[in-house]
């Protein structure tokens, strides 16, 4: 997570309201509530409007995998459609690489999509009348790239997602997992900088889902895209994310790393989510480490900052005194009390 000067995506006070005359209603509601988002949302609801996204503020950094998580109806799909400008947004600001896309012309948006943006859909959104290759090459075709050239590029991406041999199949001849591979390949055809994935694995059965998640992580490890990833599955979010935003009823209630979400949920709603998660597998030692302290006992079980709490606890089973923690270079950067490890895992019972 390198802090670049301009984030890949930045949303400021972003609203998406559905209903007749939404734009004016939002301005009025914000004025009447004195720019209080919650009050404004209530006012809008009273007026029969649907504030699907309320006052969303976040940034996605270059190469970051940003997951937006929430239950169905929480507004996460609406939010990703605002960012990708499939919906125009009702108020606020969206910047992609510093460029204000809410104010952009249709032509500019088309150009942006041809160069910078790729999107994967929950139900794949494949074109039924085109073969795999034609589907994948379609974003190149609309730009007027020659058939030979676009077919060659399509074959590259198809092999990247492991679909060699199915180039001439039609979507109806493929399994669900294969279809989503086509969807992924198509979204990567123009080699976009920014990658939107709207619940890409939700429609797949669990085994295929895990397989595709792993492959997705591999692809991301080489491509390093800036990603907005939508899911309703906390396990998936924790597994993939650099940072997670949790949405509820149109509002982002918490943004944080997987560890922060698991160990320090801001409210009961978020806590509910992380309840079923084995915390020890998702939180890491650095989250309970006392940084900078060097007073530790005689035992050194060899803890590292990136280790999961489960692994750390296993090493400190019989220890009661503070132990040192090292970073990846072997330098001691802090200490951990074994009791803190155990306490962290029981945070929700408290």
């Amino acid at each position: 997570m390198t802090e670049a000067n301009t984030p890949a995506i930045a949303c400021r006070k972003l609203w998406q309201v559905f209903g007749d005359g939404a734009e004016k209603a939002l301005t009025d509601a914000l004025a009447r509530s004195g720019n209080d988002a919650d009050k404004a949302a209530d006012l809008l609801r009273d007026a029969g409007m649907i504030p699907a996204v309320q006052d969303a503020n976040f940034e996605v950094h270059d190469g970051e995998l940003f997951v937006i998580m929430g239950l169905s109806g929480s507004g996460k799909s609406t939010l990703i459609r605002c960012i990708s400008q499939l919906l125009s947004g009702t108020g606020g600001e969206i910047r992609i690489d510093g460029e204000d896309v809410r104010g952009a012309s249709k032509k500019r948006l088309t150009a942006l999509r041809r160069q910078k943006l790729g999107m994967v859909f929950q139900h794949f959104g494949l074109f039924p009348h085109m073969t795999v290759t034609e589907n994948v090459a379609y974003p190149l075709r609309v730009q007027g790239i020659s058939r030979a050239e676009r077919t060659e590029r399509a074959r590259e991406v198809i092999s990247l997602v492991g679909l060699e041999g199915r180039e001439d199949s039609f979507p109806r001849q493929l399994s669900g997992g294969q279809r989503q591979r086509v969807g992924i390949a198509r979204s990567l055809a123009v080699n976009p900088d920014i990658w939107f994935l709207d619940e890409p694995f939700s429609a797949l059965d669990p085994l295929i889902r895990r397989q595709l998640q792993d492959e997705f992580l591999n692809i991301q490890a080489t491509l390093k895209k800036s990603i907005v990833f939508i899911t309703h599955d906390i396990a998936e979010a924790l597994k993939l994310a650099d940072r997670i935003a949790i949405m509820r009823d149109g509002k982002i209630v918490q943004i944080g790393t997987p560890t922060e979400i698991v160990l320090h949920p801001v409210d009961d709603y978020v806590r509910e989510f992380s309840k079923d998660v084995a915390k020890g597998q998702h939180a890491i030692v650095s989250s309970v480490m006392r940084e900078g302290e060097t007073q530790f006992g005689p035992d050194d079980p060899g803890l590292q900052t990136g280790m999961t709490l489960d692994a750390a606890l296993a090493k400190c089973m019989n220890l009661y005194e503070p132990v040192p923690v090292r970073d990846s270079s072997g330098e001691v950067v802090g200490i951990v009390h074994p009791s803190d490890l155990a306490a962290a895992l029981q945070v929700d019972e408290a």
């Binding site: 499939l86 999509r113 794949f124 959104g125 074109f127 009348h129 379609y138 974003p139 609309v142």
Partner: peptide
């Protein structure tokens, strides 16, 4: 399907391309 229409938009097609290359063939 809405997602097919959206996929055509996100592929960077003009409205004309979306309609004649994707939507009409899909509705055959």
């Amino acid at each position: 399907e809405p997602e097919i229409k959206e996929a055509a938009i996100m592929s960077g097609g003009t409205r004309f391309q979306q309609l004649f290359q994707v939507e009409i063939p899909s509705a055959t």
